[in-house]
């Protein structure tokens, strides 16, 4: 599945990013007041995040056991301080730090646990907006690249195949989704040979040792070349004729 996306549009039809738009740089400036840059910091106690982190990393024994033991579904676990810990069923993280009113919007009717606490309610980030949760969410796939006007697609669709479903053909849709791709091989290189990139290869050209004779020869060659170049560039036909040459 990893390489199927690159296969989608023939190279010549792919648009370069930004073509059509003037590629002028979008400028940014830092915000003037530090406070507005963070949504939570103004109202939440600054140490709440670090508390949460510490609780995750260095949990006190009993709480840890409980949250791991019941990781799959919401757990209500009351400790002496009335902190209730429930885990999100999607990202398996505790929901309650800080418990917020917005947690009522959680899916599947996760019980509201936060109203009784004294922590400010409305301004905190809902758990669903947290990065960890977002990463764990099932994302929808981009639709297939297949041209919807193709007759072949119409035929397959009429028998219930959906190009966007990410299923192949076959009794249970188990077939491959993309045609098999093979790179043409035009060398005699054996299996497993890894060529260093072009730049590396040039570098590895071995320096050769020169003795006096060789240096003299090279020098001679160099001189001749310079002479020839000078001739071609600076020779003047009139002068040549005047001098009686050529």
């Amino acid at each position: 599945m990893s390489d199927d996306d690159e296969y989608e549009i023939p190279l010549q039809d792919q648009r370069v990013f930004g073509s059509g738009i003037k590629r002028r740089r979008v400028k940014f400036v830092p915000s003037t007041s530090g406070a507005t840059s963070s949504v939570t910091s103004s109202t939440t106690p600054a140490n709440s995040i670090s508390d949460m982190y510490l609780r995750l990393v260095l949990p006190e024994g009993s709480e840890d056991d409980a949250s791991i033991g019941n990781a799959n579904f919401m757990v209500e676990h009351n400790k002496g301080e009335e902190i209730s810990v429930s885990t999100c069923e999607i990202c398996n993280l505790p929901l309650s730090s800080p418990p917020s009113a917005k947690s009522t919007t959680l899916r599947d009717g996760v019980a509201d646990t936060g109203l009784s606490t004294s922590v400010p309610v409305s301004t905190t980030n809902p758990h669903e907006a947290s990065f960890a949760h977002q990463v764990c969410l099932q994302h929808s796939h981009p639709p297939s690249h297949v041209d919807r006007n193709r007759k072949g697609l119409a035929y397959l669709s009429s028998y219930g195949w959906n190009p966007d479903s990410r299923f192949g053909l076959g009794a249970s849709g188990q077939g491959i989704q993309n045609p098999i791709k093979v790179k043409p091989k035009d060398d005699k290189m054996g299996i497993g040979v890894v060529l260093p990139p072009e730049s590396e290869r040039r570098k590895t050209e071995k320096p050769t040792r020169l003795d006096a004779g060789k240096i003299k020869k090279l020098d001679e060659k160099d001189r001749k070349r310079t002479e020839r170049l000078r001739q071609t560039f600076y020779q003047n036909e009139d002068v040549e004729r005047y001098l009686g040459g050529g």
Partner: peptide
């Protein structure tokens, strides 16, 4: 029903579409 015909290794949908076309 070429979609659900029970082949051991069903071909890629695009190959079949091309053939139909």
């Amino acid at each position: 029903d070429l979609v659900h015909f029970d082949l051991m290794d069903p071909p890629a949908p695009e190959t079949l579409m091309r053939a139909l076309e």
